[in-house]
Write a protein that binds this DNA or RNA. Structure first.
Ligand code: MN
Ligand code: MN
Ligand code: ZN
Ligand code: ZN
Lengths: 138, 138
DNA sequence: ACTTGACTTAGACAAAGTCCATTGTAGGAT
DNA sequence: ATCCTACAATGGACTTTGTCTAAGTCAAGT
């Protein structure tokens, strides 16, 4: 994660305690926290950090391409630090657990020209849904 | 659409003016309206219909499998009457236009067991993103 | 140390959606 | 045709998620 901070400093980011804490919270594999979850964990490390700053920082990280926005459900957006390896998501329909997955094949190639309606298609997002092992036992 | 109303009556739906109007509004190809858009169009036909009723009716139609919820962006959910032919979506990143698309291939087969983390995977949702013809000229 | 523009903050505001008590009515029973 | 009642509709309060602003604070270059 400190290389993230390096990279951001290199891009002219002013390094504040708040930004450092947000970057720390967003660290790990299969991390897909909502803004409020990020805020809650950030507050544990830096009690005065505000909601607005968390939203601002997340927005900047997204603009910089360091974090991805993921909208697996219709509720809050989730923030995904795994921006440098393309991947898709597997979501438990019951408890909401999210895993990063790397399907084979290229779904872009599966969309025939006749189905493109003249669009310039540049990206594809795949969400697998099912039940996680815990929720399947029920 | 009247076959939809038939089917619903058969399922014990009480047929009210409000429900009829909501069903009328949700009719056509490539229809993906938000709840508030449905409400606005319903009001044009039945001025006293309330927002709560539109939400209730949409929720029931979703539960009955007659309408699908689509969340292409992080804003309002959209309601899709094309529930009986499986399909995916192509979304313009600029103006939000949505088209139904039918890619070839089965993305479920592209998710190896090793990438399933013990989940029972039952469904997959694919969202293509790009620019529509109008937005590409800019 | 000083300066300054970038950053943070609290709280107001907004959009999307849920919940509830009250009122109305579709459709079966009489 | 009228009555009954369980189901449905309504308006408004409330919640969640997110944006915006004006005022105060501070990182970092000089
Ligand atoms: Mn991810
Ligand atoms: Mn559709
Ligand atoms: Zn689960
Ligand atoms: Zn467009």
């Amino acid at each position: 994660m400190s290389d993230l901070l390096e990279r951001l400093r290199g891009r002219g980011w002013r390094m504040t305690a708040q930004r450092r804490v947000v970057a720390e919270v967003l660290n790990g594999e299969h991390v897909h926290l909502t803004a409020d979850e990020v805020h809650a964990r950030a507050v544990a490390k830096l009690p005065e950090i505000s909601r607005a700053t968390v939203y601002n920082t997340l927005g900047e990280l997204v603009s910089l391409g360091e974090v991805l926005e993921v909208t697996t459900d219709k509720r809050a957006k989730r923030y995904d630090p795994n921006a440098h390896r393309p991947h898709h998501h597997l979501v438990c329909a019951r408890c909401g657990a999210i895993r990063d997955v790397h399907p084979t094949g290229n779904p872009l190639a599966d969309l025939p020209d006749a189905e493109r309606f003249g669009f310039t298609v540049s990206d594809v997002e795949v969400t697998y849904r099912g039940l996680c092992p815990d929720c399947a036992d029920a």
